[in-house]
């Protein structure tokens, strides 16, 4: 068990992070090809399916550009500043610490995910990810403009607890990468013990559903037990209808990338009062100052 205590150097953590991330992309790409092949066999590959997949990767590129230029340096600097100045202890970077950080990052992700679904300003960026009417691996790479910023308040406390920021970033990446592989319809339900504890393609299909019974369910990253604990779990029963309740109806990546904030700011500027404008920003999607349900 000595290897569990062996210190993982910063260089090794960076190397491991890149290794897992790169191979995760390769594996995801392979699964996407398999999905397209299966769709092709069933003669279900259309221009829209392919266009949507291409648009997904273009939004990924735009997301990376925004993250690198605007968010990345600030994000990393803030983590190190908190870690160096306010950490309660400094936890050694070993496997025990990495595993614990993954668990804590997963519960942080649950609350971050619930936040971006239930707060207008968060939903505006996350809606991009949900806006695809299809469900395949490429959808996992469909990102909104500020998706890189949302984890910050939920994961920063981990630096306060004394986790090396590199361990935190790797944990965040592992939680994200796990979910990437869930974006598929080729896998049905997994064995009951797995479905009971882990997030699975079935659980995540429910999460992407715009069916009324599936809205705002199954926020989990890796462990579905958080949804069961906090009352947001739903089993996959009816066939899932993917997308948002008011569809975007386009494969134009620019329109997709900005549609969330476009709709939000349209409502904000059309609000008749400051209270109404703020309400659109912080209340759940679908909230309206008048007594009327709108799109979410």
């Amino acid at each position: 068990m000595d290897y569990l205590y062996q210190i993982l150097s910063d260089e090794y953590l960076e190397y491991l992070h890149r290794f897992i991330d790169d191979w995760g992309f390769v594996i995801a790409g392979s699964i996407l090809l398999l999905e397209l092949l299966l769709l092709g066999v069933r003669k279900l590959v259309t221009k829209n399916v392919l266009g949507d997949a291409v648009a997904n990767f273009i939004t990924l590129g735009m997301f990376i550009a925004i993250n690198t230029v605007l968010i990345g340096v600030m994000y990393v600097t803030l983590f190190y500043w908190v870690y160096l100045n306010f950490a309660l202890v400094y936890l050694p970077s070993n496997l025990w610490t990495l595993v614990a950080c993954i668990v804590l990052a997963d519960i942080a992700y649950y609350w971050e995910h619930r936040f971006v679904h239930r707060v207008g300003f968060g939903w505006a960026t996350h809606a991009v990810h949900h806006s695809s009417p299809y469900f395949n691996i490429s959808v996992a790479y469909r990102f909104g403009p500020l998706d890189g910023l949302m984890p910050l308040p939920f994961h920063l406390p981990l630096a306060l607890l004394g986790f090396n920021p590199l361990v935190i970033f790797m944990s965040e990446m592992i939680v994200q990468l796990y979910q990437t592989l869930l974006h598929t319809e080729v896998v049905g339900k997994l064995p009951k013990p797995v479905e009971a504890v882990f997030n699975t393609p079935s659980h995540h299909r429910v999460h992407h559903g715009s069916n009324p019974e599936y809205i705002d369910k199954n926020y989990a990253g890796i462990f579905i037990i958080w949804d069961k604990m906090f009352g947001t779990f739903e089993q996959e029963k009816a066939k899932v209808i993917y997308g948002v309740t008011t569809p975007v109806n386009t494969v134009n990546p620019l329109k997709i990338f900005f549609f969330g904030y476009g709709r939000l700011f349209k409502k904000v500027f059309a609000a008749k009062s400051l209270k109404g404008a703020l309400g659109y920003l912080i209340k759940p999607p679908g909230w309206h100052p008048a007594d009327k349900m709108t799109e979410g």
């Binding site: 205590y5 210190i7 150097s9 910063d10 260089e11 090794y12 960076e14 190397y15 890149r18 290794f19 870690y83 160096l84 950490a87 202890v89 400094y90 936890l91 050694p92 970077s93 070993n94 025990w96 610490t97 614990a100 090396n164």
Partner: peptide, 24 residues
């Protein structure tokens, strides 16, 4: 985690050397 790592808690972070950007 603190209990498991009780012998290994640090009073300051151990930083990577600035030289080199290759994997170890």
């Amino acid at each position: 985690l603190l209990w498991v790592n009780q012998d290994g808690l640090l009073q300051q972070p151990v930083w990577a050397a600035d030289q080199g950007d290759t994997a170890v």
